[in-house]
Nucleic acid binder design. Structure first.
Lengths: 148, 148
DNA sequence: TGAATATAGTAGCAATTGCTATTATATCCT
DNA sequence: AGGATATAATAGCAATTGCTACTATATTCA
């Protein structure tokens, strides 16, 4: 009995997260937080709800992640002028520095992960995983297809 | 800026888990528990420590997962005759039935995930992800040795 | 208009996880 | 042999997550 794609993907993803967390635990940032900040960099001013969808966590979970990142002075909440219920999220300058500091680590990790793969194979892998993700994503969200 | 392999793998894996959990929440088993049981099926009699390594969780986490699975009468702890500190783990008949019940769900999910991929592409994907996993797995072992 | 409904975000609680320390047993070394 | 060290598993505690319920605000429509 061979392992399924699901197992394989989960294994690799966990190893990625673990390795990333091990290398960055001194800087006090986790893989998930890094992910949040990376997305935020590309969507500054986004509200919490849509960002929660982007990084695939519950809104309350994102709310608490943002609490911690605000505490760490990496993220700033600004009142949405168009909706008093909502916050708009922005990165602080400190977050930019932090991202720059992390990038070599992330790049090195990626390089290690794809060691022995040719450029064509990496492209193939990316393409195939993206298609799997699209299949699963389509299955899950019948409702919202925003931004991104 | 394209997304990194790490992001992609994490996304896909999360979507897999989420979809699996959504479909099986009535049966009261999670993706991680299913994973544990699947590994256990292939390694009956294994001790907790090695199984924790296999499914990539801390020993204490596995200990508690086993607690819950014993409670649910899916797993049985037997004293290791060779080492009085250790338990050997076995599946109950009930676990076998449960696995059989889950298999169609898991198979359907896999089928949906690889929809649109040819058999050759699936093989390619499996091969490439396996190589990435091997790269990361090797890295982690080395790092652990360095630290210790 | 204004009552019903929807939406953005958050608090309480329960479940899960991992870090650290601890117990019990095994192994190593002189 | 027997003390030092290693190992298997677990308990306590702290951190994180998500479910449910809730507040505040916005939107809809009769």
């Amino acid at each position: 009995m061979s392992e399924t794609i699901g197992f394989l993907l989960n294994d690799s993803a966990r190893l990625f997260r673990r390795s990333f967390n091990a290398r960055t635990k001194d800087s006090g940032i986790t893989a998930l937080q890094w992910r949040l900040i990376t997305y935020l960099k590309r969507h500054e001013g986004i509200r919490q709800g849509p960002l929660a969808e982007l990084i695939e966590v519950e809104p309350i979970t994102l709310s608490r992640m943002v609490d911690r990142l605000v505490e760490a002075e990496l993220v700033e909440r600004r009142a949405d002028p168009a909706d008093r219920r909502a916050w708009q999220l922005y990165l602080t300058p400190r977050a930019g520095e932090m991202l720059n500091g992390m990038r070599p680590i992330a790049d090195a990790l990626t390089a290690e992960a794809i060691e022995g793969l040719s450029a064509a194979e990496v492209e193939q892998l990316t393409d195939l995983v993206e298609r799997v993700r699209a299949n699963l994503s389509r299955r899950i969200c019948q409702k919202e297809k925003e931004i991104v």
